[in-house]
Amino acid sequence: MEKMNDKLQNTAKELLENKEVNLIIGFTKGSNPLRMRSVFITDPNDVSKLSFNAHCVQDLAVFLKKPEVKKFGKIGLVVKGCDEKAVNTLIQEYQLSRDNIKIIGVECRGAVKQNLADKGEDSVKQSTVYDKCLVCEVHTPLLYDYLVESDEPAFEINGDIKPYAKIEELDAMSVEDRNMFWQKEFEKCIKCYACRQACPLCYCTRCIVEKNTPQWIETNIEETGNAQWNMIRAYHLSGRCIGCGECERACPVNIPLMLVNEKMARDVFEKFGYKSGVDINAKPVFGTFDANDFNEFIK
């Protein structure tokens, strides 16, 4: 990883020194060697803190929605391919100007699941990485100003592990059984909204759940309210979610939110041929229509 880090640091240094950006957001080593955390660098002399490895899990694009970050104006963002799609979506949705961001794309070979890393796992292979890495089509980011290539080879996928296998399982269940499954999952929800806070695309300053005239979404922690919250979160992210998985990672009670996100992403692709976060100039799938859209459910 040394070469990678050198390039990363040099790029960041140059950007800061030339005043092309006022802030670099990237990864740095945490207190635990197998945990990486975010770092905010404004001084070119601090770029040595920047580092990248298979434990860089967080989608740093989440910071772009924060007012305290926005006020820096021009920002350099260290970003993996999957997370970079969030940047694209933010540009598509007018939350970010392309001129205000320098994308330092890093080639990612897969991120090790944090629960495994916490137990000492340090190798990137199909059994250790997140499901999203197994379906990843963007090891190299789609859009970048600078690219930091990986020093590592791609890991091998032999099909032994089926990513998001539970989706097919749920699809095959009866509606009552699905209902049971989700009821159990949503029962755990404590309405902490960590899923929302961790999401780079949940950028509303007043979330619908906080709107109380009328209160469409129940705020109390009971099964209907919980289900409604989880439903509306998934609905608002349909056709937008880029699959970074941060919501699920942030969930303190381990609700498998990616099973909903991924399912909706597949549905949207199947019905409308749309993949989110791919093209900054594309019309978002729910901001447009086609006269020949799917019509089969309508009498």
Partner: peptide
């Protein structure tokens, strides 16, 4: 369009 996705979501959630 919206209901296409919304119905899928509702059904998926039981």
């Amino acid at each position: 369009r919206k209901y296409t996705a919304f119905r899928d979501l509702l059904s998926y959630l039981g």
